[in-house]
Amino acid sequence: MSENIRQQMKEEAFQQKFNQVKPKPPLLKNIIWAFVVGGFICTIGQFVLDYFLSLGMGKKEAAGSATAVMVFLGSFFTGLGIYDELGKRAGAGSIVPITGFANSIVAPAMEFKREGYIFGVGAKMFVIAGPVLVYGMVTAFIVGLVYWLRQ
């Protein structure tokens, strides 16, 4: 027991020392990058949406088409090896928009192509995006249930 306590004290003392020398992330710089890049991606999205609307599409169709275009762009720039360079600087600014979602599916698909189309691309494609889908659907289900009960 005393051995456990000694280990715990050692761990705490080390953690304290570690916290003192831990480098802080450049918060302001990161926020500005995320704001600019995230805003830029969303502005492009808005342009695309407005363009489809101007073609006379309905609101739902235009939104769907704009999403498809943004997903394509996200995948395309992942394939070119540009999106990870952007993500390195922009952080959440390029992860949160739907282009980031596309990146999270295309990146593992590219990476695991060497393991073949079944165990590689097929199986590994959703390693990052899978949890997003699962919990997105669970949340949608709960919200739907609440909505249905209130009617």
Partner: peptide
């Protein structure tokens, strides 16, 4: 990287440490 962390093309931000 692919074994221990994320696919290399994934746009993640690495912490300063």
């Amino acid at each position: 990287e692919r074994q221990y962390r994320f696919p290399t093309e994934l746009g993640v931000q690495r912490p300063p440490m």
